[in-house]
Design a protein around this nucleic acid. Sequence first.
DNA 1: GTCGTGATCTCAATAGATGAGATTTCTAGT
DNA 2: ACTAGAAATCTCATCTATTGAGATCACGAC
Lengths: 272, 272
Amino acid sequence: MGTPSMQKQSSADKVLKVLDLFTEDAPAWTVEMLMTELGATRATTYRYLKALYDAGLLAPGAGSSYVLGPRIIQLDRQIRRSDPLLQIAVPLLEDERSPLIGAKNISSLYGDQVLSVYVERCDPDIVLTMQRGRVFPLVYGSPSRIILAYLPPYQMKNFYTANAEEVARAHLGDTWEEFRTSMRRLRKHGHCIGNEMNRTVVGISAPIFHDKSAVSASLSYVRRVEFTSDEQKAELVDLVMTAADRISKQLLSYKPENGAKGPVFTTPRMSG
Amino acid sequence: MGTPSMQKQSSADKVLKVLDLFTEDAPAWTVEMLMTELGATRATTYRYLKALYDAGLLAPGAGSSYVLGPRIIQLDRQIRRSDPLLQIAVPLLEDERSPLIGAKNISSLYGDQVLSVYVERCDPDIVLTMQRGRVFPLVYGSPSRIILAYLPPYQMKNFYTANAEEVARAHLGDTWEEFRTSMRRLRKHGHCIGNEMNRTVVGISAPIFHDKSAVSASLSYVRRVEFTSDEQKAELVDLVMTAADRISKQLLSYKPENGAKGPVFTTPRMSG
DNA sequence: GTCGTGATCTCAATAGATGAGATTTCTAGT
DNA sequence: ACTAGAAATCTCATCTATTGAGATCACGAC
């Protein structure tokens, strides 16, 4: 990280970088604040804001402030409705009513990150940190790890060379060979059990494939750890692996219905 | 609609307009398709895609196709977490367990549109068309109309002059005076009952204010029409008006906690 | 290791971005 | 309805970034 060459910056890049300023800690920005932050004049700042406002990505707030706009919420709905994974998985998961399951989660692979895309709380008293939209690194948490374990060899290799330290810190192996072995073991089991993300629950994750040997997501069933016996864990393993397998099978035969033009799956990019 | 003067188009505008191509009916675009659609060369098309990909708004899919990206899902979560309306309203609504309520909805005013931002299904068998992210015009549906009724005078006037036909078509008045009267009546009742959006349910909506006489959203309680007596409607009116009022009161005294810099409410713009 | 597709680079010509201040548009209060 | 004050847009000359065409590069697949 840190190539000395300063990349040439296009205008669109500069406009889009404004979006990154709108974080949870700073959800609203006044024009004055943006001017100093961008080092631009009032006219230019308004030009940037207008571009984002016209796209609906920002909305004017009180005073001369701006906040994230309605288009984001609309686009998220569009994704929810056009994602074949959710189209297939959600009805299946809603039919699954085993009382063992405290919560269900689907996490998708995007590039070298894993994004939670669906959370269903079944046990009303369970404490969940997962929400649609949370991002995790590939080494952290069982939903991520089971995806990591099923990456194609070259991607796994790339990932390791770029993230050897994180892998070691996560106790997934201090060398490439150790790492490969632990990943092989995960594949052999076909699932991953963890409770490091949230100490009050156990999560059991199984891989979802959108193509033969191309992992795209994971399904996790979660339960409060205090009430979970080993037998129940074993049963949850069965449940989650069966459900994930059923989802994968339907995904393999998925054909878009409503005239959708082409595939809708993402492919990972290890570059970063 | 239809100013003869062709507006000068900035580069950022062109890049952002690419996002509009990704609709529910066309969730995935190949580079070739985008080239013909944009009338641009391969190099330019890739430049646009790279800008949006680097921002996370698009993600590469199978083949040389692109789909909406993970950043949208993340940003939606950010909005959910930083919106004071949801911070205040959701806990209050989750405590409300009256069996009369089949579903709950919060809709927010953005510009001259109303966006559904929260939906909670209470009756598991109710058929809902509302979802977070759906957009409605200001004249259509009770969640919209109760917001329309409480717009400040100049905005209401602006809205009427720009949308007289739609207002008449929605039977809200054939003249400005008639419109003003029907809006006054809605304000007098303090709520709006409707079932035009979804014939199988009745919805009852009450306004939510984020400032004295500045409407920002509406709360709606919904129930299957087949099971709803007039007495139950009256009780639902009480429930929704009480809850909306409680939310408004808390919003008025809302102060951001976590060092958020400034207000987070949107102000309408009637320009369109 | 080697092939093939998908993505990026190079360079000259051209089209768009920028800053400063005036101007217009919008909103709130009387 | 009218007006004061603020918010957003416009104008124009200068300068810098974007564009297209083709070659080249990089990465994933076998």
